[in-house]
Design a protein around this nucleic acid. Sequence first.
DNA 1: GACGAAACGATGCTTCCGTC
DNA 2: GACGGAAGCATCGTTTCGTC
Length: 417
Amino acid sequence: MGGSKEAGWANQILKKAQLVKLESHEQNLADTLIDLCYNAEKRTGVPIGIALAAAFDLLVSAEYYRNLTNRGWCYCPEHQSLIFPYTNTCPACVLSAKFYYHRSNKPESGKIGTATSRLLCVFLDRLFVKSSKNFKIYKGSEPIDILIHDEKENVLLLAEVKAAPLITLPLLVRSEEKLTDLIEGEIVELPHTAVDNSSLASANICLLIPIHKDGLWHSKLVEFQTKEGNLTNTNWAYTQLENIFKGNNDLFDLYLDSWQRAFEAYQVAYHKKDRTSNVFWLTNACGQPKPRPDEWPARSGTGYESVSDGKTSVGMDRTDDIKKGIYQVLKLGAESKPNNKQYQIKTALISNIHAARHYDEYLTSLQDVVWALDETGLAKKAGELDIETPIYNLFDGIISFTQNHPRDEWIREHFRF
DNA sequence: GACGAAACGATGCTTCCGTC
DNA sequence: GACGGAAGCATCGTTTCGTC
């Protein structure tokens, strides 16, 4: 590093970066959700960061629902419905603490990180627009995930992004009748079974929102318009979610209450080993069912299938990701900060949800680290360095909707969740 | 544009460690 | 010692990058 080679470093990376262009369906849903969040904050006093994190999960859900097909549905005899789940269990029954294994419908490997990272950019973009901040968001190239450029203050934020939803609500279609099979000459009702949903285009697809009432969990079903004529329109889910939530404060409040309970359950399951809240089993990384039913399937190797694999992390909560994120941020800072004179460079970890399980162990001791370059290799105290030696933050911010740790004025001012 | 290298996110398997 | 959960390691298929 050093010398004239680095003179245009920031300009070069900005030139290579691609401006995140918003599609109208993404923008419309994000705007609707953000309005609902600020409305909820005013009416109910819910922390805005919690509301935004919950809303972000809905935006990601829309992306997941794009891949809705006739395959992958779970027939549930107890609710006489076909259900499209995102964890490995019948989501309607798990709200009554009953585990029936059904393979989840998560997007295939490699798609989730890309989609959530992009949608976080979309969401941040609309938040900046709402607060009249004229920032540009770019998708960077290695080692930079995203760049946020504030032209007015000449700030360039380089960030490592880790984003993943807490919960993806299942979809449900009521079955006209109970499904049956012929067993040993006798017609019997089918148990939980994987089935094809052959009338998707004309079905009344419902969003299944878990709601907590009188100490118990129930399913609230909210109908989408039919998918008819829209089978190939992959923006369908965005417009449907926008339609049902737009201006519907009551529905958003119900969802928000459940999301908060799910987030609480996600945390106490780890910190207090308390997995008694049924909504916990709809959250990502909830692990193996407890108690495990006798008929719960074993994995091909050792052990049993999980409801949601522990490594399907929430937000930035996967330990591998946290460690990688720390290295990436250090690398970004070390390569950019000492040599750059064009911009005020900031470095940050950005996520939708902070490392709710692992923050204390992995980030608390590092969050306030500052560093400096000492080419003598002899300095033991700051005072032994040249008086003009710059000192840099490892993290100018560890940013998420649910918890923020800013160490920089610009970040403190513009990422107030 | 073609090609190989590197990096990515996801995930299966293994190891470690605490609890009983 | 058995068990289960958490973390680490290895590997997969895919994408991106750099070089020619």
